[in-house]
Simulated scan of single mutants.
Amino acid sequence: MQDTERGVQLSVTHRRMQQGIERLAAQQEEAPSLFNLPALWTSIVFLEQLDHAYFHFSREHELRADAIGARVEGPEACAAALLRVTALAEHVDRALEVSQREAGVNAVDALVEALQVHPIELPEEILDHTLAHPIDTHPPTRMRIEALSVPLDAVLLQRAVRRPSASDTSWFQSLLDSPSRAA
Rank of each mutant, 00 (worst) to 15 (best):
D3Q: 11
E5F: 07
R6H: 05
V12P: 09
T13G: 10
H14W: 14
R15S: 15
I21L: 15
I21T: 07
R23E: 14
A25W: 10
A25G: 12
A26E: 15
A31I: 13
L37K: 08
P38N: 10
L40Y: 12
S43I: 10
I44A: 14
E48K: 13
Q49H: 13
D51T: 12
F55Q: 13
H56M: 09
R59A: 13
R59D: 13
E60K: 12
E60N: 10
H61Q: 15
R64Q: 13
D66P: 08
A67C: 09
A67I: 08
I68T: 08
G69M: 10
G69R: 02
V72S: 06
V72W: 05
E73P: 01
E73F: 13
G74A: 08
E76S: 11
E76C: 00
A77G: 03
A77K: 08
C78T: 12
C78R: 14
A80L: 09
A80F: 12
R84W: 14
V85T: 11
V85S: 12
V85H: 11
L88I: 09
H91G: 07
V92I: 14
D93I: 02
D93Q: 11
A95S: 15
A95T: 14
R101A: 15
R101V: 13
E102K: 06
A103I: 12
A103H: 14
G104N: 04
N106D: 15
A107P: 07
D109K: 06
L111Y: 02
V117P: 02
H118N: 00
I120S: 05
E125S: 01
I126N: 08
L127V: 00
L127K: 03
D128C: 01
D128R: 07
A132R: 04
H133F: 03
T137M: 13
H138D: 00
H138I: 00
P140W: 04
T141R: 04
T141Q: 01
R142M: 04
M143Q: 13
I145L: 03
A147W: 00
A147H: 09
V150Y: 07
A154C: 00
V155S: 06
V155F: 07
L156E: 03
Q158E: 14
V161L: 07
V161Q: 07
R163S: 08
P164G: 05
P164E: 03
P164A: 02
S165I: 06
S167H: 00
Q173L: 11
Q173D: 07
S174W: 01
D177V: 01
S178H: 10
S180F: 04
A182P: 01
A183E: 08
